[in-house]
Amino acid sequence: MKTDELQRVFAAMRSQMLRFARLQLRSEAAAEDAVQEALLAAHMAADQFAGASSVRTWVFSILKNKIIDELRRRVREGNVMDFAAAEDEMKDIDELFDQRGHWAAPPMAWPDPEAALDNQQFWVVFEACLDGVPPKHGRIFMMREILGLETEEICKELAISPSNCWVLLHRARLGLRECLSQRWFGEQK
């Protein structure tokens, strides 16, 4: 691809990339760095790209790797929350069930959830929900579902057991389900 053509594709992607990196890294500066590095790497590989869509795919996978590297670095430097001690964040989830473990208020089907995916406003709410669940839940859910890491990799990175990882993911999903129900799908309680 020609340089000016590539620049246009980069410019169009930049804000989406920044938003993505910010959500994962919780730091404006770290997000800027990751995006910058990903774009630089793409720039150097410019002659490999056949078209805009292959650039986007490539740049995004580089960005994901940069984010994973940064998360790894934080873990190595001990600059990360203690994932093994999650008990403090279990209370809100326990309130979803009664003492026998049945729904306090059973979830209802969401009307046409697929349509939400095409709605800009939905993504604002979805990100707010990712921000709104306890940080450990949000972080682990994003590592699993947004960055696409396998559970084993996450356990290793965060030094937790698989069962601990499953517990956190279960809680993350319950919390996100609850949040989207209330804030987007209008489930009445």
């Binding site: 959500l23 869509s53 579902e145 947004i146």
Partner: peptide, 12 residues
């Protein structure tokens, strides 16, 4: 749906 939506965020 959560899985579908989350994967969409990371898609280019």
């Amino acid at each position: 749906f959560l899985r579908t939506a989350a994967r969409r965020i990371g898609s280019p």
